[in-house]
Design a protein around this nucleic acid. Structure first.
Length: 173
DNA sequence: AAAGTGATCATG
DNA sequence: ATGATCACTTTG
């Protein structure tokens, strides 16, 4: 049985538009405080790319909250949505350019809020370094076929950004 | 269809 | 200090 290594800096330094589809089928890994290892196959992602993307949190520029997006690729961006849900993103690309991939779903868990609840991921994981963290990382796996759709929950964005096919969903059963 | 929930950001 | 706005989920 093949053992796959954790994804490293070379994977994360590419553009979010390229990384979002290639994350489908990879394994999101979480080491809980009690030592339990949870590995969940990623089934759904979205990418958010640059200040020109009106759906991206950084489209109005750099603030305290969005500063995470401007870091080097390979760290987590976790923020509180609707006062209830922590949403997990992976920061990608180069420093000073804001881009990230939202992890929207994993096997058997659909929904970005449910997945962070199941894996016990909260805002303390903001800026967690996925390349060397002992509690959150992503393991490599072979590519998987996927379909593309528009992104979800971004009605406030400009039409050009609402229509772009930046959501990626696994076709595997 | 609509509420629940609180950090964030722009306004005053 | 106040108010609007949410990259969601659940309930009816």
């Amino acid at each position: 049985m093949q053992i796959y290594n954790r994804l490293g800096y070379d994977f994360y330094r590419r553009h979010a538009t390229e990384i979002a589809p290639s994350l489908i089928g990879k394994y999101l890994c979480r080491r809980l405080d009690d030592g339990t290892l949870v590995r969940a196959k990623i089934t759904e992602t979205e990418c958010y790319f640059g200040e020109d993307d009106t759906a991206c949190h950084a489209h109005k520029g750099k603030t305290d909250r969005t500063s995470t997006l401007y870091e080097d690729g390979g760290i987590a961006y976790v923020y509180l949505c609707y006062g209830i849900h922590s949403l997990l993103n992976v920061v990608t690309g180069e420093r000073d350019f804001p881009e990230a991939v939202l992890i929207r779903g994993v096997e058997d868990i659909n929904g970005p809020g449910k997945l962070t609840k199941a894996l016990k991921i909260d805002r303390t994981f903001n800026r967690e370094n996925l390349i060397d963290s002992q509690r959150l990382w992503i393991d490599d796996a072979p590519p998987v076929s996927y379909i593309k759709t528009p992104r979800i929950g971004i009605d406030y964005a400009e039409e050009k950004d609402r229509n772009i096919l930046w959501r990626f969903v696994s076709q595997e059963k």
